[in-house]
Write a protein that binds this DNA or RNA. Structure first.
Lengths: 332, 332
DNA sequence: CTGTTAGCGCTTTCAC
DNA sequence: GTGAAAGCGCTAACAG
């Protein structure tokens, strides 16, 4: 009579134990992925019972005792900030392959961060991967009550580790390529300068250009978007440089289209064009833009290394970098 | 002496209650978003204590009793299947705005689905949104032990509701546009025909073409990608049609590039070109492809309507549709 | 190896 | 209004 309790909701481990004729503890052990001590026959009985009942553990309940949820928060800006979709496809796949799940937090502004902080959703994740540059490490640690925060937005304080592409390498290669081809002057089309990554990127370009004796004729400010690239190219301040360096491929596409339009038959091109990000788009024939990229696999591998042992990762004091490289295409 | 327990981990509701000098039950009620009965002064004391301690409720523990986690699973294929990023940006934002979070499940194949089924991660979500066409409704319901499954992949059984763009409308408009411009013959470049959505899409094109007296000269099979569009256009079977209908914008881009290359000066174009998806890419000057799209806001609104009251949504027996429309651009 | 016993942090009866 | 107490489903001691 009492065995008919738990009518409608899904079977619990207690049901499995009862059916198998063992204690809950034994059932728990038999079902555990780790190798807990259980006699062979009881394990078999438990497994059979679980199968028969269609038992699925309640991971929330489990996490209450184990203090681990197998949930990773990925914090991004608006999603079109993903300069590279492939990266996230790879990342999510890899995270899943180590048995964890990804919970996406889209944080389009500083206020939203405050919002989450106040309402406290999605705490208790095992770790947080921060791509959004609206969040600093301290805020995120506070937000998730966790020290396992990996900064991927170019920011880092002393306490949280970070992984960043080493942009200096690719930029040096690109500028060297230009110099080798006789470029003496250039324009720089930039993105949101509020971002520390962007500031560093611009500084790298300037340093390399100075080193190679390339004169900076103008610095046009965009926002990484195609439209902002178009606007820059149409701006009255637009100079007549030997080369144009854009801090995003989308902006380079905009620049390219404006000039295709203005000088439909210009052949050879009026300037050498360099983008940044190495979007898969640049493999399209209409936008064969030389760019700067990095090995997504290596990058994700570092992230996974962090996830599988955050403490060890942080131990390596310095922030981890992944090298970038220049990818020549038709526009240079 | 005992008040110093709970040293390092985050404060629990018991800590708050203790500091406020009330019982845990009172603290729970005072902190609840619903209006539970608590005297004003105790509520104030609790709120103050919570603030002071930086208390954040453990949502997992809460969900153990409330049976609701405020977690929505979004199940996708590989991420580049997102024919439209904007959609997911919008979707995640909206879901967050109703206080829920998104957990992303990337399921690249049927085997992966089985995998999840066995390991049973991420159960107990409140609802699942299925974009992946590797999962049928029954599997997903089983997978999540939940009836609150919304099919967005074009599949549906009798039990789970669905939302789909009504492609017939936009396709009819596109074919009508072609017919009005004197198109008498056409080629069709298709995607993965294993997908039911694609099958329906193709059927729609054929029906409309028949209706308008447009002859189908060839049906080339691609996989939605740019490269497959290029391949189709280079195929020996490529006819000389008045128009080319592609079931994705990316394929149309590939077709366009191949022909730009083959006939650099062809002006007017040798055929009218129609894509599908209305990618934001088609706003780029280099790919001004006429396409078929739908209102993402309306689509997401329907999804949200489901999320806020799944039972009511399912009540309206029929599957919900969102109209598509033709978006003319330079290529038609 | 096994079962009993405590909880994890929170909400919710149910009496007062 | 309030608090004591009973769980939610699971795992982790601790004795046997």
């Amino acid at each position: 009579m009492d065995s008919s309790r738990k009518r409608r909701s899904s079977p619990t481990i207690a049901d499995v134990a009862e059916l198998a004729g063992v204690s809950r503890a034994i059932a728990s052990r038999a079902l555990s992925s780790e190798n807990r001590p259980v006699s062979a026959d009881k394990r078999a009985r438990v497994l059979e019972a679980a199968e028969k009942l269609g038992f699925k553990p309640n991971l929330l309940a489990r996490s209450l005792t184990t203090k681990t949820v197998n949930l990773i928060a990925v914090i991004v800006n608006h999603i079109h900030d993903f300069s590279d979709l492939d990266l996230f496809d790879l990342l999510i796949g890899e995270i899943q392959s180590i048995g964890k799940q990804v919970i996406f937090l889209r944080v389009g502004s500083v206020e939203r961060i405050e919002d989450f902080l106040r309402n406290g959703v999605a705490y208790h994740v095992d770790a947080a991967l921060v791509f959004s540059d609206f969040a600093d490490a301290a805020s995120v640690r506070k937000m998730f009550r966790s020290d396992d925060v990996l900064m991927l937005n170019g920011m880092h304080d002393g306490s949280s580790p970070s992984v960043v592409p080493d942009e200096a390498i690719g930029i040096a290669e690109a500028v060297a390529d230009a110099a080798a081809k006789g470029v003496r002057s250039a324009a720089l089309v930039t993105g949101r300068v509020s971002s520390p990554v962007e500031q560093q990127r611009i500084a790298n370009y300037k340093a390399e250009m100075a080193k190679r004796g390339i004169r900076l004729l103008a610095e046009l400010r965009g926002d990484y978007s195609y439209q902002s690239g178009r606007l820059a190219a149409q701006s009255p301040e637009w100079p007549t440089p030997d080369a144009v360096f854009c801090t995003s491929d989308a902006m380079a596409m905009g620049v390219m289209d404006v000039h295709r339009e203005a000088f439909p038959d210009s052949n050879p091109e009026r300037f050498r064009l360099y983008g940044f990000d190495n979007l898969s788009l640049t493999d399209f024939e209409a936008y064969p833009i030389s760019s700067i990229g990095y090995d997504k696999g290596a990058y994700v591998a570092e992230i996974l290394r962090f996830l599988s042992d955050p403490a060890a990762f942080a131990d390596g004091r310095a922030d981890v970098t992944v090298p970038t490289f220049f990818v020549p295409r038709a526009t240079s």
